[in-house]
Amino acid sequence: MNIFRLAGDMTHLASVLVLLLKIHTIKSCAGISLKTQELYALVFATRYLDLFTDYISLYNTLMKLIFLVSSFSIVWYIRHHKIVRRSYDKDQDTFRHYFLVLPCFLLALVINEKFTVKEIMWTFSLYLEAVAILPQLVLLQRTRNIDNLTGQYVFLLGAYRSLYILNWIYRYFTEPHYVHWITWISGLVQTLLYADFFYYYFQSWKNNVKLELPA
């Protein structure tokens, strides 16, 4: 475990907790894409299949449980909570996210490190995580006004993946034969997707104006 990875995991944890806190306290999910949350729940469900078979460390198991419980409870809140669900804007959140799932699965069947069910599901979760933010970014473009909690949520998500890239670079130089192109490329694609959001987030922060994304 290196500082980049720990910082990445903590940032990722913070992003999920910010979102849960927002939804739980103000009982609203305005500006949040349910599609992205469903994709993230699927990412964790397919990536943590080894939760009960391979014990790596208490930290690893604990974090996996937290991510699984929080992502599924966010989906539950938006879909079923009697107050929160009313603030879900399904007319705006129209990204056909099923069109993301199939290509990622097919790609995982073709490009993977080993043709086993667990490995393919794990690779699928990597590809899906790279594109899972798209419905949320599209929704932000559409609704244009971003309340600062949602902005912070997306910012923390992007920061977590950027820190993971630093972690991979660090591990590449410090651990012999730590080479995993699939993880690195999908992680890089994911971070690049945030790049333009980061730009506008930073601009709004620098000029101290409300975050606006161009149409």
Binding site: R5, D9, H12, D50, D54, I56, S57, N60, M63, K64, F67, E113, K114, K118, E119, W122, Y164, N167, R171, E175, Y178, H180, T183
Partner: peptide, 10 residues
């Protein structure tokens, strides 16, 4: 068995 080193990440 895939190398543990990779699967230890979240």
């Amino acid at each position: 068995m895939p190398s543990k080193s990779l699967k230890d990440e979240l």
